[in-house]
Amino acid sequence: MGDFFSVSVLVATLASGIRLATPFLLAGLGETIGQRSGVLNLGVEGVMLLGAFSAYYVTLETGSAVYGIIGAIVVGLLMGLAYAFITLMMHAEQGISGIGVYLFGLGFTDLLFQKNVGTPKPIRGLGEVSIPLLSDIPKIGEIFFQHSLPVYFAFALVPLVWFMINKTTFGLNIRAVGETPEAADTLGVSVNMTRLATMLIGSTMASLAGAALALEVGIFQQNLTSGQGFIAIALVYFGAWRSYGVMFGALLFGIVQATVLQLKTLGIVEGANSSLMAMAPAVLTIVVLVIVSRRVAAPGALTRPFNRSA
């Protein structure tokens, strides 16, 4: 293990872990806001794929990643509206309709990709932005301050989301609607409007998570997200519906993944052991989930559609 504990390897591992954590974090924060208002969206993965494709395709056509991100925001809002229509107006069962959104995203992005692009063409992503001064700090700078913009954006959102949920009237409404929608309703809080707002925000963040991924790797292909949206949902439970908890989970997951990659690269683990190692993040998540679920309860009205006459 000597090789692994050299400073340069540890620095590279942590920086890699932060990059790997970013899509989980963005999507997870969005899902947190939605779930706090009582809406479960299992379609995160599908929305991520749609966001990834739109960011990729717009960037490919216009040559500008900024337009790509705008495209992803628009797609995210549209998907939020669609999911709100399905669950708020039609009162569809949230678990199943989320799976529907996922399947739609998976199939539709592949169809669009095959029709409009076909052969994968690389795009220029956003590139790294070194934060002046801070990035010059030895080690620390390399770990934290030499990343692409979505990485900074995702981590900057953590305190903002915390503030929004815990310190604003809107956040109070979200929590009220998520715990006891009937009580919130009698006090004049519009349950459906609050939930619509959280779904628009959550869906846009999922779409941005996909965009961050596509711009980081500079390519799109079928099933680019490969299950990251589902991990993000697991991390919301892991993080006990708190933004800092989700960040901790995403970082833990990302850093464990990065560590496994480094251990394999350095030849410290090989063969069958490497497959066992690959399970590490998932096993870790399950263990923490078991511990967390004893400590914190989910939002009271999670997955329960609101129906005033009921």
Partner: peptide, 12 residues
């Protein structure tokens, strides 16, 4: 399928 993981592996 995990393109991001492949990218990080190459960086490592």
């Amino acid at each position: 399928s995990d393109v991001l993981l492949a990218s990080e592996a190459a960086k490592a």
